[in-house]
Each structure stands twice: as C-alpha cells, then as structure tokens.
Design a protein around this nucleic acid. Sequence first.
DNA 1: CGGCCCACAGTGGTCCGACCACTCCAGTCG
DNA 2: CGACTGGAGTGGTCGGACCACTGTGGGCCG
Lengths: 254, 254
Amino acid sequence: MDETPPGATEPGATEPGATAHGDGPAPPKGTVTQRAIERIKTMIREGSLEPGQRLPAERDLAARLGISRSSMREAIRALTILGVLEARHGSGIYVTRLEAGDLLETFGVVADLSRGPRLVELLELRRILESTATSMAAARITPDRLAEVEKHLTAMNATDDPEQILAHDLAFHRAIVASAGNETMTAVLDGLSSRTFRARVRRGDQEEGAFERTRREHAAIHRALVARDPEAARAAAAAHVGEVERWLRSRREP
Amino acid sequence: MDETPPGATEPGATEPGATAHGDGPAPPKGTVTQRAIERIKTMIREGSLEPGQRLPAERDLAARLGISRSSMREAIRALTILGVLEARHGSGIYVTRLEAGDLLETFGVVADLSRGPRLVELLELRRILESTATSMAAARITPDRLAEVEKHLTAMNATDDPEQILAHDLAFHRAIVASAGNETMTAVLDGLSSRTFRARVRRGDQEEGAFERTRREHAAIHRALVARDPEAARAAAAAHVGEVERWLRSRREP
DNA sequence: CGGCCCACAGTGGTCCGACCACTCCAGTCG
DNA sequence: CGACTGGAGTGGTCGGACCACTGTGGGCCG
C-alpha cells in the first residue's frame, strides 16, 4: 500500500513568482483540505482503508499527502464530524465501523437548526418514515422486543415527570422502529426524533390534555403491534405523528 | 449575551503550575474545538446569528471565544462541512440560508461510503420516500412541472449515451419529487439518488435489457401523474425502485 | 467629467514549529 | 507474579508567519 508518489505531488512546488500567471501545467482543484478529504474518502471507498482500521499518525499522513499538519487536521476533523473517522486522544485515528448510526448522527443537527416551515417538513418526513416503519414492525416484531415496547409504554403512563415521559416516549418509538429491521431508517428517525427537536416542537403542547391524547395514540399503536396488523399500525403511527404535525401547522397559521 | 467571562478564559492566562491540580473552578467539557462548534450552533439557534449574515473574521472570533485561530478554523471547517456556514476566500464567512439542501448535502456522503447490506437499506429508504413523494406529486403537480417531467422522459429515451440517460433519469425523478412540495424530502432523496451512488448500484445492471424495463417503469409513473392518480403513482414508483432493490438483493445472496 | 485600472487593506487558506494532555506498553520494583 | 512507573507515541492546542483572493477606493486616462 504505497500510495506515496514521492515528492511528485508536492504542493509546495508552486512556482515562485507565479502570482501573475503560473496556472498552466498544475491547476489543482479545490482547497488543499478539500482534496485531502476526498483522498481519504476515496481510500475508504476503494477499500484501502477498512472500517475499524487505524490510520497513520496525523504527522505521517500529512507528510504522505504533501500537506501541512494543520490542513490535514482540518480534513480529519471534517471527516470526524461526518462520522467517518474517530479520533482517540493519545491513541490514534480510526475509521468508524461506518454503520448507519455513525454516519447519520449529523442528521440530528439538521433537525436542531431548522426553523419555521422546515419544522413542518421534517415532521412530515418523520410521519412518512415512522408510519412505514411501524407497519413493518407489526409484521416482524419479536416477543422480546414487544415486551420492551410494553415496558416503556407502562413506564410512560406511570409517571408525571415530563423528563421521564419524554425518555420513555423516545424509547417506545425507537424499539418499534428498530423492529422494522432497517438500521439506516432507524438512524434517520433517531435524528428526526432527537431530544432537542421534540422538546422544541412540543413546547407548550402539554397543555389542554395532550397527555391523554398521546396515551390513547400509543395504546392504539401497541394494539396494532400485538395484533400483528401492519395496516392498523401504519394508520395509528401516521395519526400519532400527524397530530403533532397538525398542531404545529395550525400554530404557524393563525 | 455576555459570552466574555473576562480575562478568565483568556488563553494566555493559563495558571502557571496548574498542571498538577488547578481544576477547581474551570472544568470545561469536551475539546476546545467541540465547544466552539456548540457555541456557534447555539448562536444560530438562539437567533443572534441570522441566515445569510456575515460572521466576524476568524481572528476576531477566535479571540472572542478565547481560543487559537487554528482551533477556531477547525470549528468553522466542521460547520462548513455540515452546510451551516459558508466560507468565501477573501470575503468572509457567512451563515448559509439554512435551507434543506444546504444542510443535507452531507447525506450524499453516507450513500457514497455505504457498502454491503447498507446499500439495500438505503434503497429501501429511497423506495419508501420516493413512492410517497411520487404519490403526493400526482395530486399536486402543475402543468409546467409535468411538461418538464415529460421533457426529461423523452430525452432519456432518445439517446444511447449512458451519461445522458443517467442525467435525465435523475432530473426526471427530481422534478417529480420537487412537486411533492417538501423541500426537505427533496434534499434527502437527492442524497439517496446521487450520481455516484446510483452509478455504483447500477454498475453491470445495464446488461440483460434493463433499459427496456426502466423505460416501461418510467412510462407507468408518467401515466399515473397525468391521470392524477396518487395510488397508481405510489405503486409505480415503488415498483421502479423495488426492481433495482430486488436485483441488488439477489446479487448479494447467490 | 466619467469610466477604467491598479494598489491596498482585509479576509480566508496554508504552513511551520513548539508544547500540552492523554494513552499505551514495556520495563521495573515490590 | 502483580502493581507501579516511566517513556514513547499520538492527538489537541497554540501563536505567528506568509500566501491567495476579494472588495474597494483613489488616481489615472480618455
């Protein structure tokens, strides 16, 4: 694995005094950092960097690509944010397992930063995915998982602490979605249901007996799962998310 | 907003000899860069940083947060990758309009780097979203947009250049999805249908008269749109993506 | 007088070299 | 044999220097 075309690709070789023209033979594309990011992504895509594998030290890597450590660090940081790499202080840099959860963590950021009409769109997206996932779960859920769902359902109804309720609410849906068997979808829905996102949407919704309504909806979803009725599950889940969606919509158009 | 705890956080003010203990009053959490990222995200969320607005210079920002320019740059780079910020060389750093497209561009990276079973999951995700979007489009599409769809459809059938076909294929679906009226969903599907992703999935599929099949499926989708029949549109789109999905699945289980 | 051009200041992009904080492991000591 | 303690190696942070690009204002030319 000697992708080290010696000093050939050396970027520092920019002709001195090239300020005026010097763009003839060596017109690289984007920024150095951007290129470094692409290089690493390519290495992973091509397979020369396997998931879980440890990368060479920052200093070595920088030298190998012919760029400074600073630029290399920015590239690494970027890939770390994307969930592709993982840096362990004092140990090294590793390629993540590249599982859905690793890569889609950034999805939560979108939900966190979105405002206005986009909140409605995100909720609509969640409605579509969650209803389908719940439907799939109805056909595939295992007894174990169903027991877990029930555990969160009863726990949710047994407390008054909003924090606890929210936590079990999240876990309730999460367990169901996980039963659909599509980890990527689970990761996406995780982002769409992140704590801060829901907290922001729900803010102020708790008034006017929304608790009771939520409880009924959850019960309906649970019933559909027990009955192994995909259509009923889809409808119940869609109605559940749709309720929040409707409320949010009405709130934006007085 | 007094994010200037006086000289306390001043970097140069690091207590001499604090190496051994001095951890009483200032036990910050993650890395400096991570904190900087959170700070900026919070500023945006709270509204003190509006979309399109220009940020202070890197040097100023670094000084304001009491960190070095290098660390600040890494934070900025991270947010740039996430599509939250946009750096213009020589001009300044700006907050993006925070539209779905900006924030979800990273979604394409996921598709690019995923392999194995995850490819199937991504395709399943696309099937769910695209079928729903196509269904919605059937009910809402405008004559203008429908004309655009037809344009790409005929152009696609009129050439033999795989490059051209792929381009029009993408545009075909894109125009339809856009008609569903949910920009966030459009952005997600864009990522799920990115050039490299599809190219990778399709590789080798072109043999055995897949062209004809694709053509028929596209025609079916178009017919459903013209008839403004949501159910038919959903079915046609699901079948279309499902075909590729099925092929990919069979390929992975000999 | 009006429009073009250039120099300049400001900004992001890159690089360097140093030091700190942490992890890991091997060699040592009890 | 096990717990402890170094040191080597690695990522994290820092500060300063210089380059490349942009935007603008003043001066020059027509």
